[in-house]
Amino acid sequence: DGCIQFTRHAGDVLLNFNRLRSRNILTDVTVQVDGQIFHAHKAILVACSGFFYSVFMKPENSSLGAISLDPKVDPKGFSLLLDFMYTSFLNLNDSVALTTLNTAIYLQMEHVADTCHRFIKSRH
């Protein structure tokens, strides 16, 4: 009557997903942002973003293999947020904080948006 918890399991799984992404293995969607193409796993996008959840949970989109985001979305902000989804690290600095905030709002990543907002406020 005991249970063994592998305390780093969540991180180990995420690391492997990121390795799969970097090698473009089993990625099942391409996201186009202002002409730039990003390969990803739908399940990760859906797990991290309310926007992608809404898109891919629609039955008519279940086999969607490519998606274009609003042209107003900044590719750099999206790239940072995609890296965050796969690593838990958000590489913020003053030059990207605002665009990352706006992209996080667009992707309905409220907790990350709150963090970006606090980061910006702390710098002014």
Binding site: C3, I4, Q5, F6, R8, H9, D12, N16, R19, R23
Partner: peptide
């Protein structure tokens, strides 16, 4: 798992997919 005695295993939990073959 509430109420269950939990033993913490802090080592790697799964194999590591290589960066490149």
């Amino acid at each position: 798992y509430e109420g269950v005695n939990t033993i913490k295993e802090r080592g790697r939990s799964i194999h590591e997919i290589p960066r490149q073959d």
